[in-house]
Write a protein that binds this DNA or RNA. Structure first.
Lengths: 205, 205
DNA sequence: GTCTATAGACCGATAGAC
DNA sequence: GTCTATCGGTCTATAGAC
């Protein structure tokens, strides 16, 4: 590092980061739109408007590309979680999170989780950034879930892990896109409907 | 057709159908295990124990292969629906269907639906067999849903289409495999838990 | 002159099709 | 068992910024 020209270095680094952010945003969108397998590296390069070779200056593989996008989503979720008031009722925070992820999904910014044996899975679970984020999010949500169950606002008969997984699954619920494709409801109405089925269930009350 | 040897022709046709059934079963299993994109035609041939070329004697493309498997699932669902008593309460029939598809999922026999813009979608919606089955199933379920809402056993505030899509989505709910992977519950317990979250919701009642 | 990004050709492997 | 297309990944030559 040339300490006599700190501005130049900073500027270059800034450019680098800005481009990296543009790349990750594009990957995030494509990942949400078509999934990991269907997304091609050429598409990503085309969408960002840079050469494919330049992509590999930033990320060593397609998996790392997708991983970076997943980490970004994770960080956004962490930021949202931390923005919620600790003084609020845990059930309200849980519902706020559910609404937030559903809105993200409807906005086409929620990558589908690679539940299956994709090559992505291996990269993700080896990524410290991803796993740390996932664990922190799970811990925060888990705390709220148990608190809400103790307060009698969430069904205490359900294991907390079931509630947690259900919330994760709702983030990628295909019902959202089905209803959007049906075109009979606005995005806000769709979120309300799925929130209702998720928390109140299908039964009459 | 040689009408002087009807037995032989029938035998050949039977063999043909038997092999076709073996193929479709294998495709069904692989489709459930890894999804359409990750499934390769070579795998299918290997699993059935026939040459890859032989596959193309039965099905013109990978999409048609998968389509046949989807039609098979659809037919099984239709058969199950028709086995349910018309005299039963509609809500009971709906829940029986939900349990049945969840069990199918846990048994590794429920192909993941191609919600995205997969090449499968096009083939499916152009398939008369698939679409007819889907429509008939949707009609039967839709009738039960509206009847249950009229009886006050299903939440009448939800559009019937939302209930229908929610049931379809639960058939492929990743929560099932998550809980199975967690290994803390038996298949029966998992079905009970997801049935609870689906119909009673996460809220305390 | 040096560094970096670009464009585009290129390679190898995989997998669908026949 | 062969053909061919696609796609992840690499390489080289050119251009431009400093």
């Amino acid at each position: 590092m040339n300490t006599l020209a700190p501005v130049k270095v900073s500027f270059k680094a800034q450019m680098h980061l800005a481009r990296e952010d543009a790349i990750v945003q594009a990957v995030n969108r494509l990942l949400a739109e078509k999934g990991f397998d269907a997304m091609t590296v050429d598409e990503v390069a085309a969408e960002v408007g840079i050469a494919k070779a330049s992509l590999y200056k930033h990320f060593p593989s397609k998996e790392d590309l997708a991983c970076a996008a997943m980490v970004r989503v994770m960080r956004r979720a962490q930021a949202f979680l931390k923005s919620l008031p600790d003084t609020a009722a845990p059930i309200d925070n849980i519902k706020a999170v559910a609404r937030w992820v559903m809105a993200l999904n409807l906005a086409g910014e929620m990558p589908t989780l690679p539940s299956e044996n994709s090559s992505l899975r291996g990269t993700l679970i080896q990524s410290r950034d991803y796993m740390d984020g996932l664990i922190e999010i799970s811990d925060m949500l888990g705390g709220w879930i148990e608190a809400a169950q103790a307060q009698g606002t969430l069904n205490p008969g359900l294991p907390a892990i079931v509630v947690l997984y259900t919330l994760y699954a709702r983030a990628c619920d295909p019902v959202l896109e089905f209803l959007k494709a049906a075109g009979q409801h606005t995005d806000a109405q769709i979120v309300d409907l799925v929130m209702s089925t998720c928390f109140e269930g299908l039964n009459a009350r």
